[in-house]
Amino acid sequence: MQTLDRWFEDYAVGEERTTTGRTVTEADIVAHAGQTGDFFPHHMDAHWCATQPFGSRIAHGTLIMSMAVGMTAGEINPQSMSYGYDRVRFIRPVHIGDTITVTARITDKSDHRSRPDELGYVHEQVTVRNHLGETVLALVHLYLVNKKSRPATA
């Protein structure tokens, strides 16, 4: 990972980046189940899943979300912090062996309500697709970002 200072003014609405692929493994699903305590049969019981419309075990939506966030975190920016996630949607199941890629596109920028001279919000639309090109997850990642023009502190 590289460290770089990227200020609010440096982000442009419309800029986009796409990650390389990552294949979801059984080990990923088992580890996530252990970490979260979510051992629902949708994720853990191959025989039961075979009787369901989705046909085989599926990854936890929260696992795919975590992977997507990690896949887009290629730089350390001391001027920016994750502020949260909005409009999270688990659109299609992800199965063991599926390969996902993530596209992140800046969709909006806005000033901080109470500190507009110092801080701003950057909104990033995150779309996760499987190897077939189908969207499996979508969310908006919000960043709180320092402004270059912020007043000097005494």
Rank of each mutant, 00 (worst) to 15 (best):
V140W: 02
T101L: 01
E134G: 11
A104V: 03
Q52S: 06
R150L: 02
R129P: 09
V102Y: 00
R89L: 12
Y85F: 11
L139S: 13
M1K: 06
P53W: 01
G120D: 07
V128A: 11
E124V: 15
V24I: 08
T72Y: 06
V102R: 00
N130S: 09
K147W: 08
V30I: 15
D28T: 07
T20H: 08
L142Y: 03
V69L: 02
V128M: 15
T62Y: 14
W48Q: 04
K109V: 04
S66G: 14
M67P: 02
E9D: 13
Q52M: 10
K148M: 08
H131S: 13
M44R: 01
T99A: 01
L142D: 12
A31S: 14
T18R: 05
T3P: 08
L63Y: 01
E118I: 03
F39M: 05
L119S: 11
F8W: 15
V102C: 03
R150M: 04
I96C: 11
G14E: 00
P78L: 06
G74A: 09
T19F: 09
T19H: 00
T101K: 05
R22D: 02
V126A: 07
N130D: 10
G61P: 15
P93C: 04
N130L: 11
A27N: 12
V13I: 09
M1I: 12
E134F: 01
T153W: 15
Y83W: 05
P116I: 06
H95R: 12
D5W: 13
A27V: 15
T72F: 01
G55P: 02
H123V: 02
D108M: 10
E9S: 08
A31F: 11
G133T: 04
A31K: 15
F8K: 06
H47S: 03
R150F: 03
S80Q: 13
K148Q: 14
T36D: 07
V126Y: 04
G14A: 07
Q125E: 15
A46D: 08
M71A: 04
T72W: 04
P151R: 14
G55S: 09
D38Q: 05
V13A: 07
T20E: 09
S66D: 06
T127G: 07
L139W: 13
T62E: 14
A50E: 04
D45V: 00
L63E: 09
Q52I: 05
H43M: 04
Y83Q: 02
T103E: 06
T18I: 06
T25Y: 07
P53E: 08
S110M: 13
A68N: 05
D98L: 01
G14I: 05
E16N: 07
R57E: 12
D108W: 14
V69H: 03
P41F: 15
A31G: 13
G133Q: 01
L139C: 13
